[in-house]
Design a protein around this nucleic acid. Structure first.
Length: 288
DNA sequence: ATATGATACCGGTAGC
DNA sequence: TGCTACCGGTATCAT
């Protein structure tokens, strides 16, 4: 499940391989083509395959950025971009031939191929097709982008995090649901929210307005720390995350609570509950 | 008008 | 062995 650290690694891996190159040609898998013909917007959203292809072919990939869990491929001139979200199982690779993608389950689910000006292939693979890609004439063309909260490492992130948590719409929500909402803080999904709450000693079910200011600030710091640690460890590969070189990350070995059955601190059995619609793990002894 | 809730999108896999 | 139910981040649509 790619969250901020994983997407950050994809960005870092892609940048030196694609920045400055031009997209010569775009092609799609039969699966995607058939789905679009059937009226389902598989992988490529917001418009048809032909118009996506027409829009991006012959454009230079000037740079690549990460915003929350999105990748933004900046196309040369006029603020155009390709937006990519990896969903649950999306992965990007840069190869000469598809055979270089060693794992069957990724190679068998290649859905979009960008042939670049150096004849390498920039490849998007997505096993479950929960990811999405769209061409945007500008960032403003996609309103959801404007709702994303602060990047955790921004200077004003703590201030904006605290301000968001104080809004009426979050005050009565479970704290885990609040911190996973991208308008509160960008890029914090189930894995890192679970870890940050464990480190902070806060139950995922605690109402947001039942955290003191001090506790909210502690929690913020744990979120930042665990995301930073995730980046340093190369991301978490719980199931399907792979970096641009097809490698798994190492953060999954450092996780203390996500998908665990025993608390590593007190050895209590880990409680599993649905919070805000998502499976959550926590220790009822260590987290209040 | 705005906020909240429901639904669609998928294939791997756990569980039967 | 083969089948079914379930999982989940986001956009979009309905209420």
């Amino acid at each position: 499940m790619p969250e901020l650290p994983e997407v950050e690694h994809v960005k870092r891996g892609l940048a030196p391989k694609i920045e400055g190159l031009t997209i010569k040609e775009v092609s799609f898998s039969e699966t995607v083509i058939k789905a679009h013909e059937a009226g389902r917007k598989a992988v490529v959203k917001g418009e048809g395959l032909d118009s996506f292809k027409f829009a991006v072919e012959n454009s230079e990939i000037a740079s690549i950025e990460r915003r929350s869990k999105y990748l933004l491929f900046r196309l040369g001139g006029d603020g155009m971009l390709i937006l990519s979200h990896l969903g649950m199982t999306g992965a990007w690779f840069v190869v000469n031939e598809l055979g270089e993608i060693l794992e069957d389950r990724f190679r068998n689910h290649v859905h979009v191929i960008f042939t670049l000006s150096n004849d390498q292939k920039l490849v998007y693979s997505d096993i479950r097709r929960f990811g999405e890609m769209r061409f945007l004439p500008s960032e403003e063309a996609h309103p959801p982008l404007a709702e994303i909260g602060p990047e955790p490492f921004d200077e004003d992130a703590e201030f904006r995090f605290l301000a968001a948590l104080s809004l009426p719409k979050f005050s009565r929500k479970a704290i885990k649901e609040s911190i996973m909402h991208h308008s509160v803080i960008a890029g914090c999904g189930n894995i890192y929210a679970t870890e940050a709450l464990f480190r902070a000693g806060v139950s995922p079910k605690r109402r947001t307005d039942r955290l003191s200011l001090k506790k909210k600030r502690e929690l913020f710091q744990h979120i930042v720390d665990v995301l930073r640690e995730g980046i340093a460890a190369g991301g978490s590969s719980i199931s399907d995350y792979r970096n641009v070189n097809g490698e798994a990350g190492g953060m999954q070995e450092r996780l203390q609570m996500y998908a665990k059955s025993v608390c590593p601190v007190c050895q209590s059995p880990v409680k599993k509950a649905v919070v805000g619609g998502r499976t959550s793990h926590y220790c009822t002894t260590c987290q209040k």
